[in-house]
Design a protein around this nucleic acid. Structure first.
Lengths: 328, 328
DNA sequence: CTGAAAGCGCTAACAG
DNA sequence: CTGTTAGCGCTTTCAG
């Protein structure tokens, strides 16, 4: 049923119907007629047809690397919550860490279909930058800083620094680092730098055999821990770039009789659920993922429909959560 | 830039452009011109305008209760993968377990905007049924059976039965049950029945103090375990309806010196990541969530555009994953 | 193979 | 407050 048929059914004009669903410049008489007819027919206007006229879709494209990662899911929940409150909906793209899909969908979103994009970034390339520059709609990057664009990110450097200091102040002198690739500016580079800076500030040196790069998962944390503990001299603390990696390291230690925190302290980043139930509860840094989603959505909504938008960066603070794994 | 402007730019007619993007009934000459012009302008047709004519949106509405639950995320990943391959996109609705949002969006999807709906169900009411019956587009229910509709679900009963049998065969005689509300037909009722049937088949009785209802989270599992162990006679095995609940129970046991599996065996359902890193690795039943998403999407795609659709049910098998928590 | 023209369902002036 | 009307950007006959 379209607006004309419905108008006829309700005994009013098309305009009256349109007004009912929009600005509501309408007599009570017609309003009632329309309400009654809706009740009876279940009519509702076609969103596509509306979109073609008004040029708003009430849709926001959300591009994320991996839905089943807790941090991504929590950010998306935050986004979802805010968009819902404002009558927007999410067009979800799960790239499954596939770089090409990121590009593909960024391009698809470039011209139409959505009113704005929230991009949960991983590794940025030149292709990303040029595509992003060509977007005709507002974009908010989440999870890392990207010069020239609006971003909501975490204080990864600060969190890593604080966590490392915590362990050093408890007497650790042979630190180890299990991180992710520095191509990832947030979880990789920033946390790495925070870790190194804390060492430098405390005059502690890092044995290069005690610094390894993992993937974003438990298994990888496990095998990296194995690598580290196969060295001559065991570390007395390990900074892990994510909680999942730390969980893997804890698993390795348990299986090999390495006591946490007595023999080695361990910490992660993210304060995900996993940290509370590991064999030894994990010290971590809470990163407020959901809040990041909320802020990103808010920032995006604020710039939708605006002519020019100055890029802004919002950096969210962290919170150290001390648990047994560093309880010396 | 719209089709007319673009056609003029490319030096061809509107029809030619439209044909280029659709059936491609076109001379090579024009095809080249158009390709060149696309290269230069980045033009792509408006999806809203297309949708209004063709009545297909290439959008599938996905309604889920909680994104940050691992099972939901994995199902959604499966859905996403298949839809991507077929050029469809996901309109994601995260209801945050809010019953009203389910209704609201089901209603919103009823008339337009999407070509089909995948509904990751929780508790069904009469409102759900009547709304679902009125849908003009195909719907696939995921996660539970719902008479009269197409569903992709798991063998919750079978998994619970097998898990319970496993523990009984290892000599357990004082079972306990930590489940979720029976209003949830899958995670609640079906698993509950599977558990009870296994007891009955083995002539084991259940002390009613050893049967409690939890929420879907770790904390609730913890406090339910506490409740159970505050009774006179401790159970020697606990069936938990989800891995998260089981993780909470394990936490409680560890804190209170109750040995797993010596004093009490514990199992969960879902085989989520959490089970591998709990203090004692958790026996569970793998439920193939991602596959469920894949199958649901496939089923939906198969019925989009078809005139009549006979409701079908697909029940996915489970797989028992034995770990230390039942290793007696 | 091709272009003109008639809509798709809706909104937003416009003149009352 | 109201109805008429002219498009929005596209697809799809239809007659070449």
């Amino acid at each position: 049923m379209n607006i004309s048929e419905f108008a006829e059914y309700a005994g009013v004009s098309k305009s009256a119907v349109s007004r009912y669903f929009n600005n509501g410049y309408l007599s009570d008489d017609k309003r009632e007629k329309i309400e009654k007819a809706i009740e009876e027919t279940g009519y509702s206007p076609s969103i596509s047809a509306q979109a073609i006229k008004t040029r708003v879709t009430k849709l926001v494209g959300v591009i994320i690397p991996k839905l089943s990662s807790e941090s991504c899911a929590r950010i998306t929940e935050g986004i979802s919550q805010v968009l819902y409150e404002h009558g927007y909906q999410i067009l979800l793209v799960n790239t499954a860490n596939d770089y090409n899909k990121e590009i593909e969908y960024l391009d698809l979103f470039r011209q139409n279909r959505v009113d704005g994009v929230i991009f949960l970034a991983t590794v940025f390339t030149d292709v990303h930058r040029s595509l992003l520059k060509k977007m005709h709609i507002p974009v908010v990057i989440t999870g890392q800083e990207y010069k020239g664009f609006s971003c909501v990110c975490h204080d990864d450097f600060g969190a890593a620094y604080a966590l490392t200091e915590l362990m050093l102040h408890k007497g650790a002198v042979r630190p180890a680092y299990i991180g992710v690739t520095d191509d990832d500016k947030a979880a990789g580079e920033a946390r790495h730098k925070g870790f190194l800076k804390a060492l430098a500030d405390n005059d502690i040196s890092l044995d290069k055999h005690n610094s390894v790069t993992a993937e974003f998962n438990i298994d990888s944390g496990y095998s990296c821990a194995k690598k580290i503990f196969s060295g001559r001299e065991h570390p007395d603390c390990i900074f892990c770039a994510t909680d999942n990696i730390a969980a893997g390291a804890i698993l390795y230690c348990r299986e090999n009789g390495i006591k946490i925190p007595e023999d080695v302290m361990i910490c992660g980043v993210g304060d995900s659920k996993i940290g509370a139930i590991t064999a030894v509860p994990l010290t971590s840094a809470r990163l407020h993922y959901k809040t990041a989603g909320i802020e990103a959505a808010q920032m995006l909504l604020n710039s939708i429909g605006r002519a020019s938008n100055v890029p802004k960066i919002m950096k969210l603070d962290y919170e150290i959560v001390e648990r047994e794994s560093t309880n010396r």
